[in-house]
């Protein structure tokens, strides 16, 4: 009996070996098709950005670049890109910082501390996720106007300074944090607030990095909110600048493509450098938010 089962197992494992090999070939083929499909628009914009207007206005299209780097110079000189970059970095950086601070504090309170109304407060925080941004545009516009914050950096930073995603993720982290360590730190005489910053925060780095990346990216890529809440390029971020550029240079396809390349490049570099954390964040979002 046992010998038979061993034999069949061996057979099936041999069979499986073949199957894996065959499947791996199919996998590579499918993977190749997917890579081409998903990356082609990136290739295409680079090609267009390096072609002269005579190649671009040719039909059928030209598939190889022609080294027309002056498109980049022209596009760069036609809008205050440096200002847009500076604004975006400032807004995204400060928003991220603010979200980290508010999320650490609230995440710690929900994850470690005991207080009256904890359950109901946490549920109401979660319920905030049901309120869509589009719905808030009109009232927030009126509120920001009355605060005299329209067309300022503040309007683009403070309203985004707290994040349910950040609080949720850090709460999950703090809940698994070894209590003994915290308790001994507090008994040693450090205040709770001090032990939070000195012991807990350094250990929470992986979770903090994930939150920071998503908040930074979200702020960098945001469009509708800054488009509505600001009106002058001196405070506008890159995406609004890009939309303005599309409005004024809508037929200069080589220049537009060049602008797309140099405005998207920073995001792509950030993504490539921190790819693991990005994918981990998507994993955490799905497992965390589901249950």
């Amino acid at each position: 009996m046992s010998s038979i089962s061993v034999k069949s197992e061996r057979l099936s494992s041999k069979h499986r070996g073949w199957q894996t090999l065959r499947r791996s070939w199919w996998g590579m083929l499918g993977g190749l098709v997917l890579t081409v499909l998903f990356l082609f628009p990136f290739y295409w914009v680079v090609v267009t950005s390096l072609n002269g207007s005579n190649q671009v206005l040719q039909f059928p299209p030209v598939f190889l670049p022609h080294g027309q780097w002056q498109n980049y110079v022209r596009a760069w000189n036609e809008a205050p890109w440096l200002r847009y970059f500076f604004n975006t970095l400032l807004i995204a950086g400060l928003t991220t910082l603010l979200v980290l601070v508010t999320s650490i504090l609230a995440g710690f309170a929900f994850g470690v501390m005991e207080f009256k109304g904890k359950q109901i407060l946490f549920l109401s925080f979660l319920a905030l996720m049901m309120i869509p941004q589009t719905v808030l545009l009109i009232p927030d516009y009126i509120i920001l106007r009355d605060l005299h914050w329209l067309n300022t950096y503040w309007a683009q930073i403070v309203p985004w300074g707290a994040s349910v995603f950040g609080i949720f993720l850090l709460r999950q982290f703090f809940m698994t944090f070894p209590r003994e360590l915290l308790e001994s730190a507090v008994l040693d005489g450090a205040s709770i607030t001090r032990s939070l910053w000195q012991i807990v925060v350094p250990m929470a780095r992986p979770a903090l990095v994930t939150v920071a990346l998503y908040i930074f990216l979200g702020s960098w890529n945001s469009f509708l909110w800054p488009y509505i809440m600001t009106s002058s390029p001196s405070v506008q971020p890159i995406e609004v600048g890009m939309a303005t550029f599309l409005g004024t240079n809508g037929t200069d396809w080589t220049g537009l493509s060049a602008a797309v390349v140099f405005t998207t490049l920073p995001v792509m570099i950030l993504f490539l450098v921190a790819q693991r954390q990005f994918l981990a964040g998507a994993f955490a979002a799905s497992s965390g938010m589901k249950g």
Binding site: W220, T263, A282
Partner: peptide, 25 residues
């Protein structure tokens, strides 16, 4: 399969790009 990590990256990459910029493409 070989190169799976790269394909995952390629498929995910559009998601991180800004919509104004890539919709222009």
């Amino acid at each position: 399969f070989k190169g799976r990590g790269f394909v995952r990256l390629a498929v995910f990459s559009p998601y991180v790009t800004p919509v104004v910029a890539t919709s222009i493409v």
